[in-house]
């Protein structure tokens, strides 16, 4: 393994660790909010939790696969791996959404989608603050 390969591995590992920390914080906030909603309405509470899970599960898979340390990987192979993980992420999302809408009854779609959209927005903001070098190029 060359020096360049080692550097590539370290960079991916650092980013991966930061991204996982963001997901952990998002999951903790979702569980906390869901626990609060449990006092008001149980359907809203588990719909909120499901919305968070629908965001977190595919994204965890995507981050785990796309940022896996592979020192010395060529750009073409890296791109193929990123595309493959994105396609799997979309597939997992579609299956998870379908499963939730078929299996979970009753469901509060409003709280599910609001949580899902808020998780997406907080993910954007956190990830852009984490590494905003591309904004300065």
């Amino acid at each position: 393994m060359g020096k360049r390969g080692q550097k590539q591995g370290i960079h991916s590992q650092v980013t991966r660790k930061k991204i996982f920390r963001i997901f952990l914080i998002q999951a903790a906030i979702a569980v906390f909010v869901s626990g609060g909603l449990l006092l008001i309405d149980i359907v809203t509470a588990y719909s909120t939790l499901l919305g968070a899970a629908l965001y977190l599960i595919p994204n965890l898979y995507f981050a785990n696969r796309a940022l896996k340390s592979r020192p010395g990987q060529s750009p073409n192979t890296a791109l193929v791996e990123l595309y493959a993980s994105e396609i799997w992420k979309m597939g997992i999302s579609i299956v998870a959404f379908a499963a939730v809408f078929i299996l979970v009854e009753p469901l509060s779609p409003f709280s599910l989608f609001v949580t899902f959209i808020l998780m997406q927005i907080s993910g954007w903001i956190a990830q852009m603050n984490l590494n905003n070098r591309f904004l300065k190029l």
Partner: peptide, 24 residues
Amino acid sequence: VPLLRSQFFIVMGLVDAVPMIGVG
């Protein structure tokens, strides 16, 4: 390439967020 890969990951998250909401 390592830096571009991380940036690609972040921007891909931005690009596919709205289609994900549409799919949902």
